[in-house]
Design a protein around this nucleic acid. Sequence first.
DNA 1: CATGAATGAGTATTCATTCAT
DNA 2: CATGAATGAATACTCATTCAT
Lengths: 213, 213, 213, 213
Amino acid sequence: MNIKSDIVEGVKPLAGGKRGKQRENNRDAILHAATRVFGEVGFGATTVRDIIRRTGLATGTFYNYFDSKEAVFDSLVLQVGETLRARLREARVKAPSFEIFIEQSFRAYFTYYAEHRDVYMMMRANQTHNGSILGPDSDQLQAGMHELRTDIEQAMRDGVIPELDIDFLTAAIAGVGFSLVEQMMLRPTADPEPVTQFATLLFLHGAKFDRNS
Amino acid sequence: MNIKSDIVEGVKPLAGGKRGKQRENNRDAILHAATRVFGEVGFGATTVRDIIRRTGLATGTFYNYFDSKEAVFDSLVLQVGETLRARLREARVKAPSFEIFIEQSFRAYFTYYAEHRDVYMMMRANQTHNGSILGPDSDQLQAGMHELRTDIEQAMRDGVIPELDIDFLTAAIAGVGFSLVEQMMLRPTADPEPVTQFATLLFLHGAKFDRNS
Amino acid sequence: MNIKSDIVEGVKPLAGGKRGKQRENNRDAILHAATRVFGEVGFGATTVRDIIRRTGLATGTFYNYFDSKEAVFDSLVLQVGETLRARLREARVKAPSFEIFIEQSFRAYFTYYAEHRDVYMMMRANQTHNGSILGPDSDQLQAGMHELRTDIEQAMRDGVIPELDIDFLTAAIAGVGFSLVEQMMLRPTADPEPVTQFATLLFLHGAKFDRNS
Amino acid sequence: MNIKSDIVEGVKPLAGGKRGKQRENNRDAILHAATRVFGEVGFGATTVRDIIRRTGLATGTFYNYFDSKEAVFDSLVLQVGETLRARLREARVKAPSFEIFIEQSFRAYFTYYAEHRDVYMMMRANQTHNGSILGPDSDQLQAGMHELRTDIEQAMRDGVIPELDIDFLTAAIAGVGFSLVEQMMLRPTADPEPVTQFATLLFLHGAKFDRNS
DNA sequence: CATGAATGAGTATTCATTCAT
DNA sequence: CATGAATGAATACTCATTCAT
């Protein structure tokens, strides 16, 4: 993977723009470049110079926007985590039945990544880096899992699903979601629908389900 | 996590023992120490000195057994992958039905990790490091997935399960497996049975299954 | 020592005041802030941002008044050196005897620092930084030493003191002066009299002098 | 001052020496080079590369012997401080009178630096760097001053010198010592005797003393 | 084979200074 | 003049790997 030869995305002097606008541009350029570098080589192997090189900015400029390499990463993960969780909350909040609750959740999740392949690549490559949204110990994942769990508990109390082990069920849903995004991404066009349908039917009827049922 | 203060596990001088035996000892000591260090801090953050320090050997000795840090890691992953795949093959080969095939597979998988917590910690901490058995691109995972897939295809051809998307199903099984090991490990004693039952029922009947059915 | 949290001393916008007055204000604010920062952390560890932060001005403004960090330092040292030498000259010029000459010199020196603790702190912390008034190679010190030396030579020619090694005597006077300011500053209130008396008697009679003699 | 073009002093491979011997050589080479670089440009401006370049060793080798730039400096200062204090103690311990006590102290002090010009250069250039033997806050200086002070107190109790301000007297002796080393070093050959005589007479009789008295 | 000192390329971060606004 | 974002050279320190003993 040749990082060095990549095309510059930042805008440097841009003499003529407003100050504030330039600041936004640079910050975004750094975040964007970072997303991609982290996705390509992982947090550990990423150097600040890799990131900044893609923006066309100077080394020092990086530190005008972020305190450290860790800080950009955290910022990225936080943003992704909150966006994704917001989408999931929204998707679930109006679900009239457990079936639809499950379906809407998977759809929101798959759709988000289908729309942000670079973010997915980054998350996938950094599942286990401390703080990653998908790493088992990250705050964002904990929060997302907790929200999911709460909703499932409610469904159990309402009697719409049997009283299963709540931790196992929550974990299984997350596990299936994660493994199916990968499959979705492997296809020529990332279409959320097939995986959404598959995951939903799996959780409702198991692998022995019949498409026509 | 204080790496430095750990107890030495290797056998140092012992000059005078049978050479061949000594070689095995040192090689194993390195592999063992590496498993744990990789599990504690991840491949990227692991230094060769961290590993060798735990063996009581000298730095240079490391390179008498392995070409590089990468090489120990690959060796470890290869060994784990092959062991695990062998167990899975064995578990499945005599399955008389799809139900039992699924159950036996999960049981073998969960049992292996229940017996090798340190290996699991290492795998979990390095899912995405290039070459990891669990990373989506690793040879071992590819091989394991392929074997699973082949068996599922057979089941479909035999009509024991509906004609679902084979890639999706394979991925879902792996995803659930992985997410449930984590749950198993979180419990005071790592018992493969509860998770095996849960996963099996999930794949046979979905989340709406009834324990008594 | 927390530099960052210090109170701002400069006058910032005040746009609309007389320009010339503002210029003076800013320049003085920078000099004042610099004196204190140099005294607290030393020239080497002082950053231009440390200085400017205390003035409430913007980074770039610093360079409207001084060419470099070195330049403020030199400016400060020059100012201190000239003030101090002027005081010393004044003190000596009317000395009717060697006794009084010595006493007046010490008094002027000690009094100056007693009145400008921040300046002393700065000098003390930067004795050896190139250019410091107190560093052995600085122009200001050279000049001060030369003036002292000239007066002592005169005293020798006049026969009021024995023909001692003139360099040694000059150096000794300076050395005692410097080491006694430190003592003066260590006391709760910086009183020039006790050290002046001590230094004077030492040079007139040696350590075996009797206070009542 | 051109640091870069300096002659290499370290011995690199020296294949054929004993291991331990080589270790000593390298450590000493680093200490020696550091003494000189610190003396030439001061601690702050000294870079580890400046030091290591003079030894002919590799960058990393520095860190096999010292933890940091600070550590070499501290090590140097500690060694100088202890050596110097030991010499001073030895010089004083057998002094039969205050006159001889003073004379012996000065002689020991001046002699030490006359014999170690590079050490003096380093001390002089780093008087105020934290930890310096000569910096007012350093442990070594504190210790040296304390020892001197204790002996002077004894002399006062014994009635050999008048009851002067002990802090002032101690400081004055140190100040004269320091300013006279500088004078000694400025002469073509660093001869401890003239300055010793001068300093002794000054403290015994003041500047008005008569050489023949 | 074992040892462990030596190597030196590689990286995050700082900071004096510039310059467009 | 004031502003403060941009610049990029510079530096301490790490660590995988080598190799003389």
